[in-house]
């Protein structure tokens, strides 16, 4: 199949075929990062704007590296260095960017739906790099890419996602993606950080970390987003770690070849112990590596360019 969307706003609206296409395309780009000269001319002459309204290290540098390895001309706007802090409306920002005729815009924004608002009004393709607690499609795609490399498939794989579910865009995109690809998903976390009616999405909601990880192929830990909570919804970090912090003991309940994932940044000693984060089951740095290949694939597909 061929890619036909102008934008990548979320996983919810993608078909399994589209997801396969992105993952397969990413496989072919992975090899570029292993070359001594890590650059292909695929997007030469194309302009990509990275528009980050929220702080980001991993996602933004991953996009930037992907853009540079594809030879795109890229530039960055971040909220601390631009008119974004001067009270300009998102709509005005968008129209100004449009006037500069970019080919693609990568946007991260604290408000769900902000990328959709841009996509409706811009000719440029829009890539959602995280909108509030809504979606983070490129993260879910790189997670799937990582799982597929380790497990060979997503079909029938059992995944436990644990942590601050309510504030996580990663979990929503991952639930959509994993279910579309035939995996089974369990979630666990403090009920005070669990959004309403989560089971209607097709996942099993567990009441303990032990229950969630028993017999699974993949454990995906989420960061507790302390900065998004007006008041902490769990009594203390110590109590959180005791209830939902992943340790070696928990991994003994999972399948023997379990892999441990984390989208980062980690709060060591809160949701994950260092012995697990740095241990043999951890594929956390593989995720970061996969990110570049997956984002190259997405940039390539959305730009409508030809094969590298």
């Amino acid at each position: 199949m061929a890619w036909s969307r102008k934008d990548l706003l979320g996983i919810a609206e993608l078909s399994a075929e589209e997801i396969h296409l992105i993952l397969d395309t990413a496989e072919s780009f992975r090899e570029v990062s292993e070359r001594p000269i890590k650059k292909v001319p695929t997007l030469r002459g194309r302009t990509v704007i990275n528009l980050f309204f929220e702080p980001s290290t991993r996602t933004r540098s991953s996009f930037e590296i992907a853009e540079k390895r594809l030879s795109a001309d890229s530039l960055n706007f971040s909220s601390s260095t631009s008119a974004l802090t001067k009270g300009e409306s998102l709509l005005d920002t968008a129209m100004n960017l449009q006037a500069m005729a970019p080919d693609l815009i990568v946007i991260r924004h604290g408000h769900p739906g902000a990328p959709h608002m841009l996509a409706r009004r811009l000719k440029a393709g829009v890539i959602n790099a995280g909108d509030g607690a809504h979606e983070h499609p490129t993260q879910a795609l790189l997670d799937a890419f990582t799982i597929r490399r380790h497990k060979g498939t997503l079909q029938g794989i059992e995944v436990a996602i644990v942590g601050d579910i309510e504030h996580s865009r990663v979990v929503r995109s991952n639930i959509h993606l994993l279910l579309k690809m035939g995996a089974k998903v369990r979630v666990a976390g403090p009920f005070t950080l669990m959004p309403a009616a989560l089971e209607t999405l097709g996942v099993e909601v567990c009441s303990s970390l032990e229950e969630a990880v028993t017999g699974v192929d993949v454990v995906m830990m989420l960061r507790v987003q302390l900065e998004r909570q007006a008041r902490l919804r769990v009594p203390s970090v110590k109590e959180y770690f005791r209830l939902f912090g992943l340790t070696k003991r928990h991994l003994s309940l999972a399948k023997d070849d379990v892999i441990v994932m984390h989208p980062g940044p980690m709060n060591r000693g809160m949701e994950i112990s260092s012995e697990v984060a740095d241990g043999p089951y951890s594929v956390i740095l593989d995720q970061v590596e996969s990110g570049v290949a997956v984002r190259m694939a997405i940039l390539y597909l959305l730009s409508g360019a030809r094969e590298p």
Partner: peptide, 19 residues
């Protein structure tokens, strides 16, 4: 209500909006 902007339920969960 807290920071809520839409009804709390399946759709607020899907959209990631506070309910």
């Amino acid at each position: 209500t807290g920071p809520g902007v839409m009804h709390e339920g399946e759709w607020s969960t899907r959209l990631g909006l506070p309910g």
